[in-house]
Design a protein around this nucleic acid. Sequence first.
DNA 1: GATATTATGTCAGTGTTGTTGACACTCCAA
DNA 2: TTGGAGTGTCAACAACACTGACATAATATC
Lengths: 169, 169
Amino acid sequence: MDRRTSGPSSGAALLFLTDEQLRQGIEAMFFAYRGFTADPDRILADMAYGRAHHRAIHFIGRAPDTTVNNLLNILGVTKQSLNRVLRTLIADGLVESKVGRKDKRERHLTLTQAGRALEQTLSDAQRARMRTAFREAGPDAVAGFRTVLEAMMDTEMRASYSRLKDTTT
Amino acid sequence: MDRRTSGPSSGAALLFLTDEQLRQGIEAMFFAYRGFTADPDRILADMAYGRAHHRAIHFIGRAPDTTVNNLLNILGVTKQSLNRVLRTLIADGLVESKVGRKDKRERHLTLTQAGRALEQTLSDAQRARMRTAFREAGPDAVAGFRTVLEAMMDTEMRASYSRLKDTTT
DNA sequence: GATATTATGTCAGTGTTGTTGACACTCCAA
DNA sequence: TTGGAGTGTCAACAACACTGACATAATATC
């Protein structure tokens, strides 16, 4: 049963992948994601916030002055769900919402000083883990990691990801 | 400071990682995980089940005859939370719970035929995406992907992961 | 044999985060 | 000016996590 290499798919030799290999990939993803969120989760548990708040803070910090709709597309939740989170963040003075100058229907979101401070705390924790993992794995592994993750995204998510990647560089 | 000579984990030369690179890793992880769960989520949405059921089914299928406690450790949730899920799965005839022969306090969990069928459906969808991503990325990238994910896990999670990886060959 | 510990299950209550449905306001274009 | 698209809010509900308290049975320990 010599099937390690089959015909070419899009140039390179088609990988033969056993269900077992794929399964390990699935489980790796599951366990790693838990680690990935563990540190911020711990910090947020002490406050009245959760993972949804973290995500909102992250992407507002990443793209200041973003609109609610833009954030909605990135996060992939309903506007009602996001609104609950935004309401508390605004009420607590972490996020500022300004009515759009050009289009008054839009709300432009920005982190306040306090918001930036929390964002820093959260992403420091998350980056620390990411940095350790990247260093342990080495640069080639990191490149592969990113390549596979990008290939695993839905098309629209990949678009959001690339857009963010490019705007900040 | 010559640090080029060390073990594989303290590694080759210490990588210099900008916050921006780490942030991209974080966002890649976020978007990719969404894609990772999207297909099973869609299937489960039509039934009365959610992601929690999927996880339970996956790991029971992976390690048949596992105990509740073992499952608890793997999933990292409370017994109350797991119990709610298991109760419905058992009531619906997807999972069988047998009292332990040696230790009668234990319940050993196994998928029924119907359970295996659902497991197959769910993991077919998830594996299909994983396979496509792996093929697009190529074998080196896949190796790197796994290396980074393993490095990102918590220690106990890495232990669970390795145990599962080894038991199935 | 009495007592403690372990494994499991259950009830009740709570919080976060997702969902629909209904509705109001703003803008733009026909 | 009217209708539709875009945007945001309120209310109600479901899934799934949590804690705490308690029950039961089996096992381990003294």
